[in-house]
Amino acid sequence: MNIFRLAGDVSHLVAIIILFLKIWKSKSCAGISGKSQVLFALVFTSRYLDLFTVFISAYNTIMKLVFLVLSYATVYLIYMRFRGSYDSENDSFRVEFLLVPVTGLAFLENYAFTPLEILWTFSIFLEAVAIMPQLFMITKTGEAESITTHYLFFLGLYRALYLANWVWRYHTEGFFDQIAVVSGVVQTIFYCDFFYLYVTRVLRGSGKMSLP
């Protein structure tokens, strides 16, 4: 555990809590892509199956459980409790365009051809692209509430901090997880355009982020 990894995990947790509380407090999931949230729940489910097979640390186990519970709770809020506010019209990204290639790649490129390893690889690849329905929705409607942009900022920051963690781990312990690193770089690149808009429009401006 190093400072980049810890900051990354905290950033990830903050992002998920921001989104959950936004929906909970406002009793609305307007502007939120339910599809992205289902994909993230799928990411955590397929990655954390090792909860049943290995014990890493209490921290590791607790964080995994928290991520799982919060991701399913968020999906529940969007599709059940506050489904009346769900904007299915604009949440029209075709997720099969992500799931099919990601599944295929997980079978082709993995550390071991076992069910758990293929599912772990699937989760790493899927996480890299899971935000696309949300970014697509923002592009389609042309705007995002500032609280939604804070969520996206922390979610993007998390993987960027993991990149620093991987550089650190490579130099200190020779650790190099090729699948995670390559996917993490791709994932972070997806947020770069958003980071730019976030700094120039949300932080320097006020209220909503609207696209030109």
Binding site: H12, R47, I56, Y111, F175, A180
Partner: peptide, 10 residues
């Protein structure tokens, strides 16, 4: 490629 199992990151 480098093998890292079990995965100790989140």
């Amino acid at each position: 490629h480098a093998l890292k199992i079990p995965h100790d990151e989140l």
